[in-house]
Amino acid sequence: DEDSERELEKLRKNNASKEEIKEVLKRLGFSEDEAKKLAEKAG
Rank of each mutant, 00 (worst) to 15 (best):
S31Y: 03
D33N: 05
K22N: 05
A35T: 02
K41F: 12
S17Y: 06
A39Q: 01
R12M: 13
R12N: 07
A39H: 01
K22Q: 12
R6F: 09
E20F: 08
K13E: 08
K13C: 15
A39F: 06
K41V: 14
E40N: 07
E9I: 07
G43M: 12
K37G: 08
D3V: 11
S31K: 03
K22R: 11
G43W: 15
E40Q: 06
E19Y: 03
L25N: 00
R12C: 15
K13Q: 11
D1H: 13
E34Y: 05
S4K: 09
K41L: 14
R6M: 07
L38K: 04
K13S: 09
F30S: 00
K22G: 03
L11I: 03
S31C: 15
I21Y: 06
L25K: 00
K36L: 14
E34F: 07
E7Q: 09
K26R: 09
E7L: 15
S4P: 13
L11N: 03
A39L: 12
L25Q: 00
K13D: 09
E40I: 04
E23V: 02
E19G: 04
E20C: 07
L28I: 02
K22H: 11
S31W: 01
E7F: 12
K37S: 10
L8G: 01
E23L: 06
I21D: 01
R27E: 08
N15Y: 08
S17R: 05
K41C: 14
L11F: 05
D3F: 13
A42T: 10
G29P: 03
E20M: 11
D3Y: 13
L28W: 04
A39C: 15
E40K: 02
I21A: 01
R27W: 09
L8W: 05
E32K: 01
K10I: 13
L25R: 00
A42C: 14
R6P: 04
L25M: 04
A35Y: 04
V24Q: 07
V24H: 13
L25H: 00
E40W: 04
E2Y: 13
S17V: 02
E7T: 13
E34H: 05
K13G: 09
L8I: 11
N15R: 05
K22C: 15
A42Q: 09
N15L: 06
L8C: 08
L28A: 03
S31Q: 05
V24C: 14
R12Q: 08
D1T: 13
D1E: 10
R27M: 11
E23Y: 00
K18W: 15
E2L: 13
N15D: 06
S17L: 08
V24N: 02
A35M: 05
F30M: 07
L38R: 05
K41D: 11
E19K: 04
K41Y: 12
K26A: 03
V24P: 00
S17D: 06
K10Y: 12
L25P: 01
L11A: 04
A39N: 02
L28C: 14
R27D: 08
R27N: 12
K36M: 13
K13N: 10
K22W: 14
I21M: 08
E7N: 02
K18G: 06
A39M: 13
A35H: 01
K22D: 06
S4H: 12
K10H: 09
F30R: 01
E9T: 07
S31G: 06
E5L: 14
A42P: 08
N14Q: 12
G29H: 00
R6L: 09
E5D: 10
K36S: 14
F30T: 01
K26N: 06
S4I: 15
D33T: 04
V24F: 15
E40R: 00
N15V: 03
A39R: 00
D3H: 11
K36F: 10
A16V: 06
A42L: 15
L11K: 01
K18R: 10
G43H: 12
E32F: 03
G43K: 10
G29I: 00
E40M: 06
N14M: 09
L25D: 01
E20R: 07
K26W: 00
L8R: 02
D1M: 12
E34T: 06
E40A: 06
N15K: 09
L8K: 01
K13L: 11
K41E: 11
G43R: 04
S31V: 03
L38A: 05
K41N: 11
K22Y: 15
I21R: 00
V24S: 07
I21G: 00
E32Q: 03
V24R: 05
G29V: 00
L28N: 02
E40F: 05
E40L: 04
A39G: 02
E2C: 14
K26M: 15
E2G: 10
N14S: 09
E34M: 07
S31H: 03
K37N: 08
D1I: 12
K10G: 08
N14W: 07
E32V: 02
K10E: 13
E40S: 07
D1Y: 12
K13H: 09
D1L: 12
E20N: 03
K10C: 13
E2Q: 11
K26S: 05
E32P: 03
E40P: 01
A42R: 07
A35G: 02
E19H: 08
K10Q: 12
E40V: 04
G43Y: 15
K36N: 14
E19V: 04
R6Y: 10
A42N: 13
K36Q: 14
A35F: 04
E7M: 14
F30E: 01
E40Y: 05
G43P: 10
E5I: 12
D3M: 12
S4R: 12
A39K: 01
L11Y: 04
S31D: 07
D1A: 11
D33P: 05
R6A: 10
N14F: 05
L8P: 01
R27F: 08
R6D: 10
L25W: 00
K37F: 11
E2H: 10
G29T: 01
S17A: 04
K13R: 10
E19R: 04
L28S: 01
S17W: 04
K37T: 08
F30N: 01
E2P: 12
R6S: 11
S17I: 03
A16I: 06
L11G: 02
E20P: 00
L25Y: 05
R27S: 13
E40D: 13
R12A: 08
K41S: 13
G29R: 00
A16K: 05
K22A: 14
F30I: 03
G29A: 00
G43L: 13
E19C: 10
A39P: 01
E7W: 14
E32D: 10
A35W: 06
L11H: 03
N14P: 05
F30P: 00
E23A: 08
R6C: 13
E9Q: 09
K37E: 09
R6W: 09
F30A: 03
A16L: 11
L38G: 03
G43F: 15
G29Y: 00
K26L: 15
K10D: 09
L8Y: 04
D33K: 08
E34G: 03
R27K: 13
L28H: 03
E20I: 07
A42S: 10
E23H: 04
K37R: 14
K10F: 12
N14I: 06
K37L: 12
E2N: 11
L8A: 04
E23W: 00
S31N: 07
E40H: 05
F30C: 09
A39I: 12
E23N: 08
L28F: 06
L38T: 02
R12G: 05
A35R: 00
K36P: 02
E5P: 04
V24K: 03
L11D: 02
A35C: 15
K36Y: 10
I21Q: 02
S31T: 11
E5Q: 11
K37A: 13
L38Q: 05
A35N: 00
S17F: 07
R27T: 10
E9A: 09
N14D: 07
K37V: 11
N14K: 08
E2W: 13
A16Y: 08
F30Q: 00
L28Q: 04
K22M: 15
D3I: 13
L8D: 01
E32R: 02
E32N: 03
K10S: 10
E32W: 03
D3G: 11
K13W: 09
E34Q: 08
A16D: 02
E20A: 09
G43I: 11
V24Y: 14
E34S: 03
K37P: 02
K18S: 10
E23M: 03
R27P: 04
G43A: 11
E7Y: 10
L25G: 00
S4F: 15
N14L: 09
E19L: 04
A42V: 14
A16G: 05
D33S: 08
L28E: 04
E40G: 04
K22F: 15
E19A: 07
L8H: 02
D3N: 10
E32Y: 04
K22V: 15
R27G: 13
E2V: 13
K13V: 07
E34V: 08
A16P: 03
E34D: 09
D33I: 10
K37D: 09
S31I: 02
A39T: 07
L28Y: 05
A35E: 01
R6N: 09
L11E: 02
S31R: 02
E20G: 01
E34A: 08
I21H: 00
A16M: 11
E9M: 04
